[in-house]
Design a protein around this nucleic acid. Structure first.
Lengths: 135, 135
DNA sequence: ATTCCTGCAAATACTTTGCATCCTT
DNA sequence: AAGGATGCAAAGTATTTGCAGGAAT
């Protein structure tokens, strides 16, 4: 883990290891606030902001925007093209894999007059989970 | 336009007409700050917050989350399934139409143990525009 | 030893709330 | 006239910045 952090060009400090380790343990993206709260006492909130920002720029972490909530963050797994499905009632988040983004990227470039390359995408679904749909 | 606003259950006040009119004139989603700035003198920023919130709940306006920037808003056109392509350098935003979301929604429901219905989706592309790709 | 990082304090920026007044209906 | 809507002031959060001390290399 310290390796990963060093490879990305950072020093393997305690706060960084703590953050990275916490992100390793979750399968759900987490907000700055959640992270800071969980690391309270060990890591200052300001440091969480700075680390997330640095990790994001280094490509270690990806920012996930879901409707109606603050941005969340998760570790980037480069070979993993997973996306999120969110319950609009209870805000439960689940992953699903695969999406037709490559195809759509090409189509979008065809349509566009001003874009030259696609480097990434977001794709998220909103719906109702089995519990909330009966309410 | 006053009609649309009344039909949604609101009074057709000057601030509302001003906001609605401004949103009509743009093809790009706008942030609260941009809107408040443009309507400065005519509409208080707090009112922009409240109006956007109300319009959003009424389905007149949709919130657009793009990476690295604050939420933006655009008028909802119910029969229009357009999406955004964002330049990661200069933040230019352009529209494109069509996406395979319906198909993916079905696939996601098949994968999921806990979701029962899909009600919406986001799909956005990130890339470089022709100007930024040469830099 | 050097340079990067961190915590703390404080400044900014963003968003929400309360309330008296104004304006649609 | 009644009730919703607005502006202003102010409170509450979220985020960024500066800087001195601490830690990794």
């Amino acid at each position: 883990m310290a390796e990963t952090i060093r490879d990305a060009g950072f020093r393997a400090t305690k706060p960084r290891l703590a953050l990275f380790s916490r992100l390793t343990k979750t399968s759900r993206p987490m907000s700055i606030q959640e992270l800071a709260q969980e690391l309270a006492g060990k890591v200052d909130q300001v440091t969480v902001y700075r680390m997330i920002d640095a990790f994001k720029k280094a490509g270690l972490v990806r920012e996930v925007h879901l409707r109606g909530v603050r941005p969340k963050y998760e570790l980037t797994d480069p070979r993993d093209d997973h996306h999120h499905i969110v319950c609009t009632e209870c805000r439960k988040v689940e992953d699903f894999v695969g999406c037709g983004a490559e195809k759509m990227g090409k189509e979008a470039l065809r349509q566009s007059r001003s874009f030259a390359a696609i480097t990434g995408h977001t794709f998220d679904l909103y719906g109702l989970c089995k519990e909330c749909i009966t309410k």
